[in-house]
Amino acid sequence: MSEALLEVRNLSKRFGGLKAVDQLNFSVAEGAIHGLIGPNGAGKTTTFNLISGFYRPSSGSVLLSGEDISGMPMHRIARRGLVRTFQHSTLFAELSVLENAVVGTYMLYPPQTFAALAGLRLSRDDAAKNRARQVLEFFGLLDHADELARSLSHGHQRALGMAVALASRPSIVLLDEPFTGMNPEETRGMMKLMFKIREAGATILIVEHDMRAIMGICDRITVMNFGRFLTEGRPNEVRRHDEVIEAYLGKSKQNA
């Protein structure tokens, strides 16, 4: 097992009296595809938002490469190499696919304000476009570069969301329910993409409600229930774990 890239220590978040996340501990190894699962309301999304800086933790800490990033604003955390995607294909709908990807390259090639005022074109602007094209090609979107993001198909929008996140070459990317609403074929395509992303050198943390897809790709899975750590292990270990089965079945009974 290689060294932990991301480490969550005693992480807690309270909303009023409600403990959404309670004393959570887990770590993500460098180069891993790590799953964070649990039934609805288990606190996965809150955990995700705590790690990415969208929420500030009530207590506990998040370490990225050994450095404490908890409580930092989201853009600072992103600049340290931790980038997230959003549910429901959140994109810049009125921008072209290429422009979306160019925004994603912001950290590699930040635009220069005075050059913009003077109307100068800088080499870094071209570099940003090249990097954007490169990442679009990686996700098979280059043919759609000039289309508006909102006109893309659902699957392509999901891929573009990941392209925006990966354009800046993050060391770890957090994917928020990437398989939701996908048919089996799209799911297979998405799984392939994830292996490709890992080959390209990024560590992946996936939050997912749907257990089936995630079993096939994760090296390790952390299971949460009621805001707390339930268990962790390899997919086949987790799958057979009694409490996990109970947590999911219990939930689905309630839903039924």
Binding site: S52, G53, F54, P73, M74, H75, A78, R79, V83, R84, T85, F86, T90, L91, F92, A93, E94, L95, E99, V102, V103, G104, Y106, M107, P111, T113, A115, A116, L117, G119, D125, A128, V164, A165, A167, S168
Partner: peptide, 26 residues
């Protein structure tokens, strides 16, 4: 010129999806 420059692109990003923009390091 500012609006058509990469800065203008960032303005647009900040307006329409501020959280996605933050996640891009903006």
């Amino acid at each position: 010129r500012v609006e058509k420059s990469p800065i203008g692109l960032v303005f647009h990003a900040v307006h329409w999806q501020d959280n996605l923009a933050r996640s891009a390091g903006i």
